[in-house]
Amino acid sequence: MINSTPQTVTIAGSDSGGGAGIQADLKTFQARSVFGMSIIVALTAQNTKGVQDAYFIPTEFIDAQFDSLADDFKIGACKTGMLASEAHVKCVVKNLKKVDFGPYILDPVMIAKGGHKLLEDDAIDSIKNELLPLSTLITPNIPEAEVLTGLEIESKEDMVKAANYLKKIGATNVVIKGGHRDSNYSDDYVLLENESFWLRGKRIDTNRTHGTGDTFAACITSELAKGETLRESIITAKKFIQSAVQHGIQVGHGHGPLNHWAELEDDIKIIE
């Protein structure tokens, strides 16, 4: 039957090193048994050591990619990652308002693992004011949440404040990822429309962490496309990322990639 397979699309930048961005998203989609597509916003010359160069795709060609996919596929959920500049954010906003790509996961990618900026400063307000209200869920890590909220986040209480601030300015649902905190655990705070809870995973001592944010958001997108609830999609994504980091792939000389085909870990603790 035509279009019966769950379909997803990632709207983001390409990572030539294969560990993050479009490449990580497509690997995640495949691992979670959905058919993945891509709308490329930027190209990067990148490896495990960092980003050496970037090229932003002309917005007219981004329009063409949106039109092409909307004309043929029945996309059940979508996500954004690296969006590069204010013009590119506005282009994506315009197109998301035109098409029906299902629930939308906003991963506000700002800085690569090696420290290279992936979002120009003038794009931050456009993300907050124009893109955020379109999202079903926003999934910032702590540094990204600090930029979006203007708050300093050092404690779990600060994470709660940041999530509530994002809700106040237009987010429907929020996950503040706690991997950057100095703790024995990786605690994520989940604030949904009608509930909140914490997801706890053990901290893993490894440098195989390239693409964690992309992969987490892509897994949520995959589960939503298959008809899972947002709560269950987030919990599955936490288990997925825990496994992918635990069994990271040994390539490169820097922040190595995850293993997107590892078996799901079942030691994630839900703290209501």
Rank of each mutant, 00 (worst) to 15 (best):
A225T: 07
Y55L: 14
G115W: 11
K177F: 01
I204H: 13
I124P: 04
V174M: 02
K113C: 08
N3E: 02
I111E: 12
Q65V: 04
T215F: 07
Q65P: 09
D266V: 05
A64F: 11
T10E: 06
H88P: 05
K167N: 07
F35R: 14
V109N: 07
K94V: 02
A225S: 12
K156Y: 15
F35D: 08
I249D: 06
Q52K: 11
S68E: 10
N95E: 01
A70P: 04
A45G: 13
V89H: 08
V190R: 12
T212Q: 04
L137Q: 08
A64S: 15
D53F: 03
L134E: 05
S135H: 01
K156W: 10
G252I: 01
P143C: 08
I270F: 04
E228C: 11
P108A: 03
I124T: 08
V89D: 03
S126Y: 10
P140G: 03
G179L: 06
V51C: 03
S233P: 09
V147M: 13
S14V: 13
I204A: 11
I62E: 02
I142V: 14
A225G: 08
Q246D: 14
A237Q: 07
S135P: 04
S4Q: 14
G21Y: 01
T149W: 11
S155H: 14
E120F: 03
I75Q: 00
N3A: 05
N129D: 12
E272T: 13
V251N: 04
G36Q: 14
K113R: 14
I271C: 08
Q7K: 09
Q7V: 07
N129P: 02
L26K: 00
C219H: 08
W198F: 14
I138N: 08
S186K: 03
A64D: 12
Q246G: 05
L192G: 04
S155F: 07
L137F: 08
E265R: 09
K177A: 02
L106C: 04
I62T: 06
K177V: 06
T229D: 11
V9M: 02
Y189E: 02
N207K: 14
F35A: 13
K128F: 11
L199K: 01
P133M: 09
S126M: 13
I57M: 10
D188R: 10
K27C: 00
T59V: 12
H247K: 12
